[in-house]
Amino acid sequence: MEIKFLKAGSGDCILIHNEGKNILIDGGNDSTFLIDEYYNVIAREEKINLLIVTHHDDDHIKGILDLFKHIEAKNESPEIETIIFNSPKKINNLLKEEISANLLSYKQAHDLENVLLKNREINWITTLDSSINELFKDTFGEMSLKIFSPSKEVLLTYASNKGAYLNSDYRCDWNTSIKELAKYIDDKSQDTSPSNKTSIVVYLTIKNKKILLTADVTPERLDKIVDSIREDKDKADFDLIKLPHHGSYRSLNSKTLEKINCRNYVVSTNSSKHYLPNKRAFIKIVQSLKLAEPIEFLFNYEEAIHKLKMTDKEMTEYKIKLKPNTDRWGYGITI
Score class of each variant (00 low, 15 high):
residue 8 A to V: 09
residue 13 C to L: 08
residue 13 C to N: 11
residue 15 L to R: 03
residue 20 G to W: 06
residue 27 G to C: 03
residue 29 N to K: 08
residue 31 S to Y: 00
residue 38 Y to D: 10
residue 41 V to D: 08
residue 45 E to F: 05
residue 54 T to V: 06
residue 55 H to V: 06
residue 68 F to N: 07
residue 69 K to L: 14
residue 73 A to P: 05
residue 84 I to N: 02
residue 86 N to D: 15
residue 102 N to I: 15
residue 108 Q to A: 02
residue 120 R to C: 07
residue 129 D to E: 15
residue 130 S to D: 14
residue 140 F to S: 01
residue 142 E to G: 08
residue 152 K to C: 00
residue 154 V to Y: 06
residue 157 T to W: 00
residue 159 A to D: 07
residue 167 N to H: 00
residue 171 R to I: 06
residue 175 N to T: 12
residue 176 T to G: 05
residue 180 E to F: 10
residue 187 D to N: 06
residue 187 D to Q: 01
residue 199 S to N: 14
residue 200 I to R: 07
residue 200 I to D: 05
residue 204 L to G: 11
residue 205 T to H: 04
residue 225 I to M: 04
residue 226 V to L: 07
residue 228 S to Y: 01
residue 230 R to E: 00
residue 248 S to Y: 02
residue 249 Y to T: 10
residue 254 S to P: 12
residue 254 S to Y: 05
residue 257 L to T: 15
residue 259 K to I: 09
residue 262 C to E: 11
residue 276 L to T: 10
residue 280 R to C: 04
residue 291 L to H: 08
residue 295 I to T: 08
residue 300 N to E: 11
residue 309 K to A: 13
residue 319 K to S: 10
residue 319 K to V: 12
residue 321 K to R: 12
residue 327 D to M: 04
residue 333 I to H: 00
residue 335 I to S: 02
